[in-house]
Structures are given as C-alpha cells and as structure tokens.
Amino acid sequence: MRKADRHVLIKELVNNHTIRTQEELLHLLEKQGVTATQATISRDIRDLKIVKSPDVTGQARFELFQENQAQQEETENQRLIQMIQDVVTKVDRVQFMIIVNTISDNAQLLSATLDEVPMTGRVCSLAGFDTVIIICRTEDDAEKIEDYFKKHAG
C-alpha cells in the first residue's frame, strides 16, 4: 500500500475508533490488510500530526491535531514572506500577471508555498526553473500582489 493511501486509512481509523497505542493502530491496520512496521507507523503518526488527548473518561487516545485556522494561515503567510526574502530576485507585472524571478532552481518551491497561502484575486501560479508566473483575476488584484511581493523582497 502506498504511503498516501495508508495515511488516508490511518486518518479514518483514528476518527472512527478509540485508539490508545501504536500497537492498537498496527492491529487495526492489519485487519484492513495493511502490514507496516512500528517505525513506519511512528513516522505516519508524526507526519499526520496525530496527538494523544484525553477522552471523556480521562484516558489518552489518538486524535488528529486540529490547528487553529487563523494560526495556520499566519504560519503559512510567514513561511511565504521568508521564502520571498530568501529567493526572489526581481518582480514585474504585465497587466493581470506577475512575473517573479528567483535564484536558480527555487521557482517551484516558491510556487508551492504561494499556493498554500490564500490570496484574493490570485487564480494560479506557474513555475519554471527560476521564474514564477502568477495569474490574477484583474489588473488591480495583480497590482496588490505585486506590491506584496515587492514589500517583502526588499
């Protein structure tokens, strides 16, 4: 079973069963026909941000960590700002598109980070080797995003 499929199954099991230990999780996975090692399950728990929290009886059980949405958006925004400061070399705008030049081999990483941050007016971003094109709905939206990039690019 692929990692992504296993992660989906683990999330489903954690949401639908009371699981208190990794061994219980391994047992439930085996019932579903999935064989995995203790080390693999440990990594999966970390990757999925599964935490132990007390249930109504006070006993600890696994559950998916639910980060505050505003806090998560702020973290993503800070990561984007840091990325802009670290890799952006030039920002230009042509009508409703923004052209962002980066240091070599960083455009795709910047584009992926950009996609995680909600931005009004942004339709999508396309990345090459050292260039990201951001397509916006209107010229006004593009101007606002251009200003954002220029402000943080220094």
Rank of each mutant, 00 (worst) to 15 (best):
S53W: 08
S104Y: 09
S125F: 03
R79N: 14
F62L: 11
F65L: 15
A112H: 13
Q82Y: 07
D115F: 05
G128H: 06
K3P: 08
K31P: 05
F149H: 06
T138H: 10
R137P: 03
R2H: 12
A60E: 14
I134T: 05
I41R: 00
H7I: 02
L13W: 06
R93K: 15
I19D: 01
F149M: 05
Q108V: 09
D47Y: 09
F96P: 06
L9N: 06
K49E: 15
N15L: 12
A127N: 06
A142R: 01
R2N: 15
D92N: 13
T37V: 03
V91P: 00
P54T: 08
T40L: 14
E143P: 04
I135F: 11
V94H: 13
T57L: 10
F65R: 11
K52N: 04
Q69L: 13
L29H: 03
E63C: 11
V132K: 00
V56E: 15
L110P: 03
G33T: 10
K49R: 11
I41M: 07
G121T: 03
I134V: 14
N16Y: 07
D140S: 09
Y148V: 09
E63D: 08
D47L: 09
D130H: 06
S42I: 01
V87A: 02
T89W: 03
G121D: 05
I41Q: 01
L29Y: 09
V100R: 00
T102P: 04
R20F: 02
D130P: 04
I145L: 15
V34D: 01
K52I: 01
D141F: 03
T35N: 11
T57A: 11
Q95F: 09
T102Y: 04
I41C: 04
E146C: 08
G33S: 10
K90Q: 14
D130G: 09
E12V: 02
E23M: 12
T113N: 07
I45E: 03
T120G: 10
L26G: 00
E76Q: 13
V56T: 13
I41N: 01
R61P: 02
V94M: 12
H7K: 10
T37G: 14
Y148S: 09
T75W: 05
M83H: 07
R46M: 08
L114C: 06
R2V: 12
E24V: 02
I50G: 00
V8I: 10
L13N: 03
I135G: 05
A4Y: 14
I99T: 11
T21A: 04
V100C: 08
T18R: 15
K3M: 11
I81Q: 06
N16F: 08
S104M: 08
D55Y: 04
D86Q: 15
Q108L: 10
A36Q: 04
T37W: 02
G128P: 04
V51E: 14
T75Q: 15
I84T: 00
A142C: 05
E30A: 15
I45V: 15
T35Q: 12
G121E: 05
T57R: 07
Q22G: 05
I99M: 09
V56M: 13
K3R: 14
V8A: 12
I50N: 00
P118K: 11
Q32K: 15
M83V: 07
D47I: 03
K150E: 13
Q78P: 06
E143K: 11
D47E: 13
Q69R: 12
